[in-house]
Design a protein around this nucleic acid. Structure first.
Lengths: 162, 162
DNA sequence: TTAAACTTTCGGGACTTATTGAAAGTACGA
DNA sequence: TCGTACTTTCAATAAGTCCCGAAAGTTTAA
């Protein structure tokens, strides 16, 4: 069953824009109570060392996985964050970085470059883009707050507002 | 400038998990005041008919673009939704459909199949997965409400709560 | 019913991204 | 300092995705 969960989670990851291996490693670490070494990950998922290493690092970069050092042991072990709320924050943070921030940059650059234009079209263009940019900025702030929030009370509270 | 906006938006799309052409068509339709035909889209972006057709349909599927019919004319025209709030709702709806719903399905299927297990591991497994599933369900509800909300007051209101 | 105008589908090639496996790098203990 | 145990990098290749263009399908007007 664990194996099935892992492969399915991997398939899901693809749709989320996360690569399959990364999602599978995450699933693998999410379930068992103990941390695993690189070699164990390689063996369990039947993947190469390079692949395991790259994706473990990526997961650490997302802060979804932590490196664990055991006293007196050379080998490193890896453990996944299990608190769903924290996972959510990490994903929000990452998405902000990869999605809303670049969008905002592009929009603002375009707005700035049409500032000189004075034709009706230029104004219209600027107006459209500004509306978009403001909105993205707002969404950005929301995500930031969500990512920074400490307690897992936020989502229920949001739900109440809606 | 418009052209630059279009290409940059296309590049952004890639990071969002949307294909380049789709994002470019969206940008193309977002800016000008008038709707465009398939042929005009092909010409502006220098893409094939098949490509234009496929991606226009995909955009329509996302409800980001509408098909416009002109009386007495055979040809169809396309126009993008410009209300940023509506765009947001559409994206939320689509993401829910493509991200949280499948995740929930996988989790619930796995939980159901371990219901019989009674070992400590099985219980632990079930506990973990249930926590995740509940959380995803909560997120799901939030997105649903957001997508259904009519006014563009929701985001500011959420912001106040945080 | 047919031709014309337009839309959709789909196989194959181009391009992009992920993975391997081996070599190089690093850190530790003796 | 060296050997060992481990981690990281990277070039080659495999896998996956996107796009073209031609052919097939559909709708409309005559």
């Amino acid at each position: 069953m664990r194996r099935r969960f892992i492969t399915q989670w991997g398939a899901l990851g693809t749709q989320w824009g996360i690569n399959r291996t990364m999602a599978m490693i995450h699933a693998l670490l999410l379930v068992p109570e103990r941390e695993l070494s690189t070699d164990e990950v390689m063996e369990e998922l039947d993947i190469s060392r390079g692949n395991a290493n790259t994706n473990l690092r990526e997961l650490i970069d997302w802060r979804l996985v932590e490196r664990m050092v055991r006293l007196g042991e050379r080998r490193e072990y890896f453990a996944a964050e299990k608190d769903v709320w924290k996972i959510f924050c990490m994903v929000a943070r990452e998405r902000k970085r990869r999605e809303t921030e670049p969008a905002r940059k592009v929009l603002d650059a375009c707005i700035r470059e049409t500032e000189s234009g004075d034709s009706p079209e230029a104004r219209e263009f600027r107006r459209e883009l500004t509306a978009l940019s403001d909105f993205v900025a707002l969404a950005n702030t929301v995500m930031e707050k969500v990512a920074a929030a400490e307690q897992n009370r936020v989502l229920p509270r949001i739900l109440k507002v809606l």
